[in-house]
């Protein structure tokens, strides 16, 4: 099924890369997501906003099954990638995670060299062909705008880089495995405004080739960079639609109250 925007005045949606339909998620007895239905458009940026504890990070981690790592999680409903259910028993979770990659809230490069960080995903996949590794490393670092900074420091420890370069290295490391969808969990919350601007610019560049989903606490950031926005509250998807319309003319009073800063 293809969910429609909450508001009929929104323009029609482009092709959906991923779709979540009637999704319930429980942490033990606690229900963290309730009947969530929304699409994630191909080659666009979809933002998930909402106050703390609304379930936006949980929803993000449904999309690459990172929630599987938490004991006692129960997922019901349908989550599709290119029309196929990723929670089907036949799904190879490792392969799924290379197609739906993730950038975390705090930059988490491995305690390895820059080069080994970027090539981690390929090595995991069993690629050892030297020329291909080198080619991928350069392409990924270029795509994350790090090549000029780091080309002479490929063997330096990644943890000694400044934070914003660490975060872009995490993006590069992800691009190296050629994902189709990039999930970003508050990727700028540990960064200063200048570094944040760089990451945002990078995201706008990347959306030509990738479908991006970003969770953010920062409403201005969602308004600046996303094409579609979902507003969540206490596990419900209150409103989903075109970002410009949602921020100027929200259909739900709760959305209105949140974006005007009345709570959250």
């Amino acid at each position: 099924m293809i969910p429609t925007p909450t508001n009929p005045s929104d323009p029609p949606l482009p092709t959906a890369k991923m779709v979540v339909a009637k999704l319930d998620l429980f942490y033990g007895a606690f229900q963290a997501l309730r009947q969530v239905t929304m699409p994630f458009a191909k080659n666009h940026i979809t933002a998930l906003i909402g106050p703390s504890g609304c379930g936006k990070s949980t929803l993000l981690r449904v999309l690459n099954r990172m929630n599987d790592l938490i004991p006692g999680v129960l997922v019901q409903g349908r989550v599709e990638l290119d029309g196929l259910d990723i929670y089907a028993p036949a799904t190879d979770v490792c392969e799924l995670r290379t197609r739906v990659g993730m950038v975390f809230q705090r930059p988490n490069p491995f305690p390895l060299s820059v080069r080994d960080n970027v090539l981690f995903g390929l090595r995991v996949a069993g690629v050892h062909h030297r020329a291909r590794l080198d080619e991928t490393m350069e392409r990924s670092l270029r795509a994350a705008w790090l090549w000029d900074n780091l080309k002479d420091r490929l063997h330096h420890p990644a943890l000694e880089l400044p934070l914003d370069q660490q975060q872009r290295l995490c993006v590069a490391r992800l691009l190296a495995v050629s994902p189709e969808v990039i999930l970003m969990d508050e990727p700028c919350s540990a960064l200063d405004p200048i570094a944040t601007a760089k990451i945002e610019e990078l995201m706008l560049e990347l959306k030509r080739d990738y479908s991006i989903v970003i969770v953010t606490h920062n409403m201005q950031q969602a308004a600046r960079i996303s094409d579609y926005t979902g507003y969540m509250l206490l596990g419900d998807m209150v409103e989903f639609g075109d970002t410009g319309r949602l921020f100027t003319n929200p259909a739900d009073t709760r959305t209105q109250d949140y974006i005007s800063g009345r709570y959250g």
Partner: peptide
């Protein structure tokens, strides 16, 4: 834990995450 999550999110198996990241750290 961020190291483990980072490795798993790149498609590593648990054992690969341990061998290639956790043990190094």
């Amino acid at each position: 834990n961020a190291f483990r999550e980072g490795a798993l999110a790149l498609g590593a198996t648990r054992w690969q995450a341990v061998r290639m990241v956790v043990l190094k750290a």
